[in-house]
Design a protein around this nucleic acid. Structure first.
Lengths: 385, 385
DNA sequence: CTGAAAGCGCTTACAG
DNA sequence: CTGAAAGCGCTTACAG
C-alpha cells in the first residue's frame, strides 16, 4: 500500500527458524548446544545438579542457597539458556498466566472505537497487577479446516465483550469451558457479567432533548444485528436488535419519548449505521435531517457517531444546538474538544474493564465470585444540546 | 472505588478451579471423566481408535475419512472434550500462534495515548489475517523473585515498542532470543526496525511556525528519560534524550530553528511532560506562556499534549492562532475536531503497526526479512497554526 | 487411511 | 537443602 512511499534500508536474509525436527528455535549457544536448543536439563547436566534444582532456581528461590542459585543462573546465561520454556511450564503447571479478551468479528474492529481502547486499558491495569499478560483474541470468519484462534489460545480465562445474540462464535467461546466474564452482553447463566446502565443513560439523554421541546427525534444507532445495514430501520428490526447494549439504549430512548407523550414509531426514527465511525454518523445525520418533519433532536448511540453528526451539521451550515441538537454516548475524552463540546452520556469505561478483570481474576484464584455488576451512567451537559 | 455507586446483583460462590493434583481445570463431562479432565486419549479410547487419529481429526482433516472425522468430533463434543490443549499443542509443535507486543513500563500506559491503540490496530489487522493472536506484554517494575511477564509469555515473536535507551527491560526482551521487530526505537543490530520520519515531520512543523514570523518557540516534549520530569529542561537533558523518536523530533525542530537563524538554546525552550496526556500539555502551555519574551509559537510533540495546550489557550482567553499558535504531532482522528482544528504532523500510525507485524510474521515464516522501514510523515495545516 | 511409539521441556510431591 | 521419578497432553514421522 505504502510501498511507493516507503524507504527500505538494508536487506538481508531472515534468520529463519532453524527448527530441528519436532523442536523449537534452535540456538547456537553454549557448549551443550549442538544445533539443539539449550534446555533446563542441559544446564543441570553441566553443573552436575538435578533438573529440579535448576527449576527451583527460577521458581522457588527459597528452596536453595543463594550461592547455588547464583551459580545456576550464571551458568544458564553463559550457556544461552533462555529460562523455562513457557509452553512446557504452562503444560506442566496447568496455567498460562494470560487472560484473553475476546471480541466479535475481526480483532482490529475492537480498536476502531476509542472506547474499546479505554476498556482494554482497564483490563490491563488489573491484569498486570495480578501478574497476567493480556491476549487479544478475534473471531474472524470461520475456516472449518483449522481451529479458531479462540480454541488455540492458551489463556486461563476470558473476558467476552459485546457479542450479538446468536453469534455462533459466542458458543464456541463458552464451549471452551474456561472461566469467563461477559461484558455488555446478554447475560448467560452462571457467568458473571459487567454492564453499564445503558437504559438509564439513554433515558436521560432523550429526556434532556425532549425537555427542550423537541417533538421529533432521530436516533443514530450502531448496527442492530449481525447483518449490519445502513439506513432507516423498520420497527421489527429495531425491536429485534441483537446487541444487549443497543437494545437497552433503544429502550431508554423509548421510555423517555413515551413519557413525554411521543409515539415511538411515529415520532422517533432510527437510522442504523453498519460501523461505529464518525463518517457513518455524518451520513446518518445527513439522511435524518432531510426527513419531514425534520428531527432536530439527534440521539447518537456513541460519541463516534455523534462526532460525525456534528461534522455534518457544521458542513451543512446548521447551528448546533439551535438548529440541530446532538447528544452522544460514551463521553470519550475527546468529546469535550468538539465544536461545540458534546453533550453526552458518560460511562466509566476504564472502570468497566477493571471490573471485568477483577471478576475474572477472582474466579481464577478460586475466590467467591460476585454476581453481575452494573455501573452507573450519567448525562454530561455541554453545549451540543 | 466505585463500590458505593455499583449495583451488585446476585452473589454465588465461584466455581473454583477444581484442579486435580498437577492437572488443569477438571470437568464433569462425559462418561470418561471421573473428576478428571477429558483428554484426547479418552476420546480415542472411547471410540477405539488411536490418539493420533483423533489428533488428525482436528489438525489434518485430509488424513481421515470425513465420516470418521464427524464421528470423532461428535463423540468429543458429547464427552465434553474441549479440543487439543493449547499448552500441550504448543509444547509439542514448538509454536504458539501468538505474537507479543511489548511496551515499556505498565501495560495500561500503552493505552493512554490513542495513537497506541491505532498502532495496535495495525498489528492486529495483519496478525489476525495470518492466524495469530496478540499478546500484550507489559514490563512492570521488576520483582527479583518471579519471572517477568516477558519471560513467561508464550509467543512466537515480539514487537518491541518505544523503549528508552538503557531500559533494563529492553535487554531482557532481547535475551529471550525470540524473533523481534523494533518500532520507534534506537536500532539494534540484526533486528528489523520500523520507524517514521520523525525528524522530517518535526522540521516541517517548526518551519511552518517560523515562516509565520515567530522568533521564539516553546516545545512541549514527552518525557526525555526514564526518570520522567515536569518542567523546563536544560540543554544537557535535552541533548541526552533517551527515546529515539523524541531525539529525532527535537533534532527536526532544531534544524528548522537554526535554518531560520534562531539560536536553539536561547530562542527555543523545551518543557518536559512526565506523561503524554492533555492535562500535562495544558500545564506546559501555561508555564511557557508566562515566559518573557513569550514563545507564541508552540510545538507539541504529540496531539495529546497539543490538545492540552489548546485547552489552556481557550481557558486563558488567548486567541489561537493569533496570540498562540500550536502544532501537534500524530494527527489523531480527533485532531480535526478541536477548536480550532489542530495543525499537526501526520504519521501513518495504523500502517506502522501493519509493517511491524508483517516484518515479524515474515521472520516467523522463515522468509527473507526486509531491513528497516521508515514511513513518511507530513504536516497537515488546519487552523491552530 | 490408521495406529504404536517416542518425546516436546518442564514442575511437583516426595524421599532422603 | 538436593535429587530421582512420574507425568502434564499432545503431534509427528513412520510403518503398516
Amino acid at each position: 500500500m505504502y510501498a511507493d512511499r516507503v524507504a527500505v534500508k538494508g536487506r538481508r536474509s531472515g534468520r529463519g527458524r532453524g527448527r530441528a525436527a519436532g523442536g523449537r528455535r534452535a540456538r547456537a549457544a553454549g557448549a551443550a548446544a549442538r544445533g539443539r536448543r539449550v534446555t533446563l536439563k542441559d544446564v543441570a547436566a553441566a553443573l552436575g545438579v538435578a533438573p529440579s534444582t535448576v527449576s527451583n532456581a527460577y521458581n522457588r528461590p527459597d528452596q536453595l542457597s543463594a550461592e547455588l542459585r547464583e551459580r545456576i543462573l550464571a551458568t544458564a546465561e553463559a550457556m544461552g539458556y533462555q529460562g523455562p520454556d513457557p509452553a512446557a511450564r504452562s503444560l506442566r503447571r496447568g496455567v498460562s498466566n494470560a487472560i484473553g479478551v475476546v471480541y466479535p468479528s475481526e480483532l482490529s474492529y475492537a480498536f476502531t472505537d476509542p472506547a474499546a481502547a479505554l476498556f482494554i486499558e482497564g483490563i490491563a491495569l488489573e491484569a498486570e497487577q495480578a501478574g497476567y499478560a493480556l491476549m487479544l483474541i478475534g473471531t474472524p470468519p470461520r475456516d472449518e479446516a483449522s481451529l479458531a484462534p479462540v480454541r488455540t489460545a492458551n489463556v486461563d480465562g476470558v473476558v467476552v465483550h459485546c457479542f450479538a445474540d446468536g453469534d455462533p462464535h459466542f458458543d464456541e467461546v463458552l464451549a471452551r469451558g474456561l472461566p469467563a466474564v461477559m461484558v455488555d452482553n446478554t447475560g448467560v447463566d452462571g457467568v458473571p457479567h459487567v454492564a453499564i446502565d445503558d437504559e438509564g443513560g439513554a433515558r436521560e439523554a432523550a429526556a434532556h432533548l425532549l425537555r427542550r421541546g423537541h417533538r421529533r427525534l432521530g436516533v443514530i444507532s450502531m448496527d442492530l444485528a449481525l447483518d449490519a445495514r445502513r439506513g432507516v430501520a423498520g420497527p421489527e428490526r429495531v425491536a429485534a436488535a441483537s446487541y444487549a447494549a443497543v437494545r437497552a439504549r433503544l429502550a431508554g430512548y423509548r421510555a423517555a419519548a413515551e413519557a413525554a407523550g411521543l409515539d415511538w414509531e411515529r415520532d422517533v426514527v432510527v437510522y442504523e449505521c453498519p460501523e461505529n465511525v464518525p463518517e457513518e454518523g455524518a451520513r446518518a445525520a445527513a439522511a435524518l435531517l432531510e426527513l419531514l418533519p425534520r428531527p432536530a433532536g439527534i440521539l447518537a448511540m456513541s460519541d463516534q457517531l455523534a462526532f460525525g453528526a456534528l461534522a455534518h451539521a457544521q458542513e451543512a451550515g446548521l447551528a448546533v444546538p439551535d438548529e440541530v441538537a446532538v447528544v452522544g454516548f460514551d463521553d470519550l475524552p475527546s468529546a469535550r474538544r468538539t465544536t461545540p463540546p458534546l453533550t453526552t452520556v458518560h460511562q466509566p469505561t476504564v472502570e468497566k474493564g477493571r471490573w471485568a478483570a477483577r471478576l475474572l481474576i477472582a474466579q481464577l484464584r478460586g475466590e467467591r465470585a460476585e454476581g453481575s455488576v452494573v455501573l452507573p451512567t450519567h448525562l454530561v451537559v455541554r453545549e451540543s444540546a
